[in-house]
Design a protein around this nucleic acid. Structure first.
Lengths: 120, 120
DNA sequence: TTTATATTTCGCAAAATTACGAAATGAATT
DNA sequence: AATTCATTTCGTAATTTTGCGAAATATAAA
């Protein structure tokens, strides 16, 4: 409750990407599309997921809005693929966030102090 | 809507960790605690964040529930620190998820095919 | 033109999240 | 015993998320 009225921009963006990953359906979709570098149809996903088609459609819309996937219309199908550019950006931001720490083994403060030097 | 009634366990867990990171206040807190490997008090955070103390307390509670931080009582203060073990786990799961893909440059399918071999 | 198919949007309800101020807690100080 | 202090919990309200089925859309096939 200081003079700051906003969260830092990078923090907000990390939270935004994390939010896109905060539901199992969306993780599943991204996993499928990114991990196997495949594209697929809404119906393919509907057959594998324990949610209705309209609900799935909403999750796809959210991922599209977050910029993480894109739909290529191929009537009457819509082929969904990863949006590589934004996915790489999300990956970079999240990994940077996750990695910016100094793991110190609780048992020993062995000679890994060079790690700290490297990090700072 | 198939015979599957649940999402895969790893997918659920990734979503759960991502959810813990889905609010700027929580990202800020984790950033502070993990990045600089510091512990701090609720009051310290309250002074830097644009939210009330009771709201902050709720976010701390959530992070504690997610297992990502732990509070060490030191009356009348409570010193919050990263829960290293679970933080490393979250990190591992999220990074594994983020990395399990095959980035293929759109311009050229250059001789990075060895990457695919390494990945699969 | 009618029918079938894949998908989305609409309308709605239930549940979860976010937020705040007031009150409670629990230990230290007076 | 009363006061102070950092923090949390409670009560409550506003907003967002998640979910579904029905209806709409848009194309292909009959």
């Amino acid at each position: 409750m200081s003079e700051r009225v906003e969260f830092p921009a990078d923090v907000v963006e990390i939270a935004r990407f994390a939010k896109a990953l905060s539901h199992p359906a969306r993780v599943y979709i991204l996993k499928k599309l990114s991990a196997m570098n495949a594209c697929c149809y809404s119906g393919d996903l509907a057959d594998e997921l324990p949610i209705g088609r309209s609900t799935l459609s909403q999750h796809l819309k959210e991922l599209k809005y977050a910029g993480l996937i894109q739909g290529e219309i191929n009537p009457p199908y819509i082929k969904y693929c990863i949006n590589r550019e934004n996915w790489e950006k999300a990956k970079k931001m999240l990994e940077e966030f996750l990695d910016e720490n100094q793991p110190i083994t609780s048992t020993a403060h062995s000679n890994n102090s060079f790690l700290n030097i490297l990090k700072f």
